[in-house]
Design a binder for these strands. Structure first.
Length: 332
DNA sequence: AATAGGCCCAACCGCTCTAGT
DNA sequence: TACTAGAGCGGTTGGGCCTAT
């Protein structure tokens, strides 16, 4: 059961932008006597405003400890990280950024950071790589660009590299899903150029020599991940170790997290992808981490799947892209 | 110079939460 | 325990500003 707005029934209460005179009255009163009851404050301070409006004006604009000016890179990263943990809990996020108000952070998120993440291929709600199909089309270029990042002397920022990495991961996820769908409908695909990986997967799916991973297993894994909104793939450094320490869960490298990494000490849910990444690093980093999916995943035990290592190279994924495209175009 | 469209952000609205009775 | 007042939160809006045409 909600409450009626505090200003209801208060005829003649001023709304809209505050004047400097009103600001002075409010600041002088609060500095002298504190705000006490916001509802009674306007009358006591000589303001023709509702208490709620006064509170907002004070907390979002007039408070002396408010920091002005554009957000720094560190603040941006912190907001994104906290948002990945807390969601739209702007007031909670604001407590970690001294001098910034929840309203300011919310506005900045909606006008800047949200778009930035979208452009980077990150879903601003889930903080996971976007999985829309448009990413697929750009995969070869992304992989090529990722390859160029071996030159660490360029002006390319870690931020951009992380963005690229996420896009690559998202595209890989799409590829694997497409491949599994193709596998589950393909009777006997004819040979096509660069079919090594696909044929290996098919061999596996037919009861194969690599440990008996079958089509149903692959399909179950995709369905399981769909249900849990989890990409099947996590970090899988395509070419260079420049991505080491990268956490696909929130778009920031773990080194950039500084003291804010993870959900330590809070009651928020640990991002499973971040957990995956940490586990992956423990194991030497790189490579796909299907084996690190939670215990209920039907994909457990895939660590013996050499194919995954094969895919985890530039050429492997490029080949796979061609194969999936070929399968799709063949309408198998 | 005029204007249309987009962007940004302060402020508002409606709801939930919490403390007091 | 139920109810109410007040505070706080998140979503949305509207108007000023900027830029492109």
């Amino acid at each position: 059961m909600g409450r009626s707005p505090c200003c209801d029934g208060e005829a003649g209460v001023k709304k809209g932008p505050w004047t400097t005179e009103e600001d002075k009255l409010l600041v002088n009163y609060i500095q002298e006597k504190g705000h006490g009851s916001w509802r009674r404050l306007p009358k006591l301070a000589g303001l023709n405003r509702c208490g709620k409006s006064c509170r907002l004006r004070w907390t979002n604009y007039l408070r002396p400890d408010i920091k002005r000016g554009r957000f720094t890179d560190d603040e941006e990263k912190l907001i994104i990280h906290l948002h990945s943990l807390l969601g739209n809990k702007w007031s909670s996020i604001a407590t970690e950024l001294p001098g910034r108000t929840d309203n300011e952070i919310k506005n900045y998120w909606n006008t800047h950071l949200r778009k930035k993440l979208l452009c980077m291929g990150i879903d601003p709600v889930t903080h996971r790589p976007r999985t829309d199909l448009s990413l697929l089309a750009g995969l070869p270029g992304l992989l090529a660009a990722a390859g160029n990042f071996g030159d660490s002397g360029t002006a390319t920022t870690a931020w951009n590299m992380n963005a690229l990495k996420l896009q690559v991961d998202a595209a890989k996820f799409q590829l694997l899903q497409g491949l599994v769908r193709a596998l589950t409908t393909a009777a006997a695909p004819a040979p096509a150029p660069g079919m090594d990986n696909l044929m290996a997967l098919l061999a596996l799916s037919n009861g194969g020599q690599h440990g008996g991973v079958d089509q149903n297993m692959l399909l179950q894994q995709c369905q399981w991940n769909d249900m849990n909104n989890l990409p099947a793939l996590t970090s899988s450094a395509p070419t260079s170790d420049m991505f080491d320490g990268f956490s696909a869960g929130d778009g920031l490298s773990s080194t950039e997290h500084g003291g804010h990494g993870g959900a330590t000490g809070s009651n928020v849910t640990v991002d499973p992808m971040e957990a995956d990444d940490q586990e992956s690093k423990k194991n030497g980093g790189g490579g796909m981490s299907c084996e690190q999916t939670p215990a209920s995943s039907p994909f457990d035990g895939l660590e013996s799947l050499n194919l995954m290592d094969n895919l985890n190279t530039d050429g492997g994924w490029k080949d796979l892209l061609e194969q999936v495209s070929w399968l799709n175009s063949s309408e198998l």
